[in-house]
Design a protein around this nucleic acid. Structure first.
Lengths: 149, 149
DNA sequence: TTAGGTGCAAAAGCTTTGCAATGCT
DNA sequence: AGCATTGCAAAGCTTTTGCACCTAA
């Protein structure tokens, strides 16, 4: 479970300083939950609580949080990097169904891939630390609309 | 099978014109084969054969080829979009093992995911048209090196 | 002929960086 | 005090666009 205090401690342990800017950033991070946020969106949230904070600070903080393994970069081809909070405790990844019509991203919890992973590690001599599955298609809202196309 | 003539025909059928620039671009595309090429790399290849061609022409041609479904955009987080030739005939996707140490990308042919796809289509009410699996980890060259880290 | 294509240079957008001032620890 | 951090502005990157000129069909 990632709460603010844990993150703050981890920052100090890394030799990073805990500034008001970072505190606010972490706060907003928590409110964003499991969403796929862009740096811009994070920045907007932070600015609401403290208009003084600069964009580059957010970028730098995001970099640190990524190095710490607290957030992961995702790419949904919408022009900017997106991140999401990692679930540190469980090695339980989720996948994304991406609607090519409306762009909606549906999350899917399913560890179907464990068998595949084992096979890869054996056959390919590759040590797996993470994986990412994106499935493109039409969501239920868009399927009907598109049908006659 | 995608040969140059097929692509040329498809271009004309779409109402696009077949210019020398596009011919060279397609030529180079063939030599790049199944590699994951960036627009810059494609541009370099084209420039060797015809130094007059401008970068924006390559970008525009790549856009058209993508719309035509002949190439697909991939993202390996190295700063720019990468593309690869599609295999039109077979619905036979391949996946990527990405080494987080040296950046090497290993391709993997395996249609393990068909069962998963069926389940998604049923459970999630989602019509799948494509998928993309990226597996991050250490390749055989880097595993030993990293071991003692 | 004429609609689409081309090259160049400029613009766009996201992201990074240099630097002087600031502030955790 | 010492060194990481900050905010700003400028720079860096890839990618897109405007425009006048060209060219395939």
């Amino acid at each position: 479970m990632n709460n603010e205090n844990q993150i703050v401690d981890a920052l100090r342990k890394r030799g990073n300083k805990v500034t008001p800017q970072r505190l606010v950033t972490i706060e907003v991070l928590m409110t964003l939950g499991q969403q796929h946020f862009s740096v811009e969106e994070l920045f907007q949230g932070v600015k609401q609580r403290n208009p003084e904070v600069g964009m580059s600070t957010i970028y730098r903080t995001v970099q640190i949080l990524e190095e710490m393994g607290l957030i992961t970069k995702r790419n949904f081809d919408d022009g900017f990097a997106r991140y999401e909070l990692c679930e540190l405790d469980e090695k339980h990844w989720h996948h994304h169904l991406i609607c090519v019509k409306c762009g909606k991203v549906i999350e899917m919890q399913d560890d179907f891939l464990e068998a595949l992973e084992k096979e890869i590690e054996e056959k390919k001599d590759f040590i797996i630390i993470n994986h990412e599955l994106k499935v493109y298609g039409y969501c239920s809202d868009c399927y009907g609309i598109t049908k006659g196309e």
